[in-house]
């Protein structure tokens, strides 16, 4: 009990003596937590959205003529040769026409006079949930294009490609901001603590002479690191939450929101970020203590 009293008193003195650099460190740590958590949030939401979108992926193979029942069986076998599928559905010319007409609704009269078979027959292939990577879908589509009678394969390749590169880019940004966080947390904290230690050399010497134990001298500095990590991550995450709330309140465009259902970071992730920052800051203070507080 008295030990902790002494430790807190000492840590308080440290904070008072070097509050300028402490504040700087604290701000840097919060800012880098904010930057990292922001990109991570964007990343998880993008991944979430892409998962949702890929649930709706279907490849449409347009055929140059209506396949007979035998031909259908053959095609199904060939498609399943490449990989098992969730579903394979044949759409005849008639069905395509009906569907189109239904989509037009009241305007369906524009179709009057058109031949009922002007739309091509097609196969709708829903790939297995496991086959969801961009490159796999691409391979699959190339395979489907080589099927007998296949005219053209469509699966929204353009947005998929963009989305794919966007998530690649995001991954890099997340990794970069993670390294930024690691660097700032450890180096800044280790630097300020070194500053404190240097500025109090006399006192630390004296403490040793009057019989202060190692833990009496060191624990306040470790505590300082823990505190920097805790406060920095809490403030950084709170700022992110405020930003998140502001964005969801001000950009309530229903279309966008429905497609990208924005979620805040999960509690597990929040806890992980806080613990990691604490760990990194403690590591920073520990290295300084090891280097400059030889006992």
């Amino acid at each position: 009990m008295n030990f902790w009293l002494a430790v807190f008193r000492q840590a308080g003195r440290n904070l008072r003596q070097t509050w300028m650099s402490q504040l700087m460190t604290f701000l840097t740590v919060s800012l880098s937590v904010l930057i990292f958590a922001f990109f991570y949030l964007v990343y998880t939401n993008t991944i979430g959205a892409s998962d949702k979108l890929s649930e709706e992926i279907r490849l449409i193979v347009y055929l140059n003529e209506e396949p007979g029942p035998e031909m259908q069986q053959q095609l199904i076998r060939k498609i399943n040769n490449f990989d098992d599928t969730e579903e394979i559905r044949f759409v005849s010319k008639q069905e395509a026409y009906d569907r189109f007409a239904a989509q037009l609704g009241d305007d369906s009269d524009v179709l009057d006079g058109m031949p009922k078979d002007f739309l091509p027959a097609s196969i709708e292939v829903v790939p297995l949930q496991t086959l969801r990577g961009f490159s796999e879908i691409k391979l699959f589509s190339e395979y489907l294009a080589k099927l007998p009678g296949s005219e053209k394969v469509q699966y929204g390749q353009e947005w998929m490609e963009r989305f794919y590169y966007f998530t690649q880019l995001l991954t890099i940004v997340v990794l970069l901001s993670a390294s930024l966080l690691i660097l700032t947390a450890t180096f800044m904290v280790s630097y300020t603590i070194r500053l404190t230690i240097m500025g109090r050399q006399d006192e630390l010497e004296l403490l040793k002479l009057v019989g202060a134990t190692n833990s009496y001298i060191r624990t306040p500095f470790l505590l300082e690191g823990i505190l920097q990590g805790l406060m920095g991550s809490l403030i950084g995450l709170s700022a992110l939450y405020a930003l998140f709330r502001w964005i969801t309140l001000h950009f309530t465009d229903p279309g966008l929101l429905n497609m990208f259902h924005f979620n805040f970071l999960q509690p597990v992730i929040i806890a992980a970020i806080i613990l990691t920052s604490i760990g990194l800051c403690t590591l920073g203070s520990f290295t300084s203590i090891q280097k400059f507080l030889k006992v």
């Binding site: 006399d202 004296l206 002479l209 009057v210 019989g211 202060a212 134990t213 190692n214 009496y216 006992v295």
Partner: peptide
């Protein structure tokens, strides 16, 4: 370490140059 610290707690020294903070 700890043993030295505890022994030093039992020794009081008034230094010639005081060593006051």
């Amino acid at each position: 370490g700890k043993k030295l610290a505890h022994l030093r707690q039992k020794i009081g020294v008034a230094y010639q140059d005081f060593k006051l903070l």
